[in-house]
């Protein structure tokens, strides 16, 4: 075990990690930040996506030591300090872009990375970008709409009738 230091959501943190300690494990177990989820062990599902130095990565496919000194952003740091949801989080609620919530942290973090790269994506671009995020509940329909809406594009209201 050796000490790893990094910044998570703007806060300097440190903790002991083995060589094999994954960043996801470090966040969940060492730091107690259980918002980041682990849904697979083959780097496919994307529930564990966080940002490291501004880039979306799968925290289950990166060692804690590789993040030494890095700026890490997780789902816990997305809302304002007073609890106000950011525009992506709010759009996910408004457009029913989540059901069980397990894939949601990764979806929100991937969506944030997408909109940083491409502020007005087309629907096809959103769907392609989500290749590494699996959701079993929503059929993606409302996730795609939520991300489109978060980008400021016109999206019909939910359950129009």
């Amino acid at each position: 075990m050796t000490e790893v230091k990094m910044t998570v959501n703007g806060r300097a943190v440190s903790g002991d990690a083995e060589g094999r300690t994954l960043l996801s494990t470090f966040l969940r177990e060492t730091l107690g930040m259980t918002g980041t989820h682990v849904g697979c062990d083959t780097s496919q599902c994307g529930a564990c996506v966080v940002h490291v130095n501004g880039n979306a990565v799968k925290s289950c496919t990166m060692f804690a030591h590789e993040a030494a000194g890095a700026e890490v952003a997780t789902i816990e740091g997305q809302a304002a300090p007073d609890g106000t949801l950011n525009k992506i989080q709010q759009a996910f609620q408004d457009y029913h872009g989540l059901q069980c919530g397990f894939c949601t942290p990764g979806m929100v973090m991937s969506a944030a990375a997408l909109l940083k790269e491409n502020p007005q994506p087309t629907e096809a671009e959103v769907r392609d970008y989500l290749e590494g995020n699996i959701c079993r509940c929503t059929g993606y329909h409302n996730i795609v709409r939520a991300i489109m809406a978060a980008s400021g594009q016109e999206v019909p209201a939910v359950a129009a009738e």
Binding site: A56, T61, M62, L114, E131, G132
Partner: peptide, 9 residues
């Protein structure tokens, strides 16, 4: 290759 998060690593 892979997906955006994989491509970043």
């Amino acid at each position: 290759i892979g997906d955006p998060a994989v491509r970043n690593r």
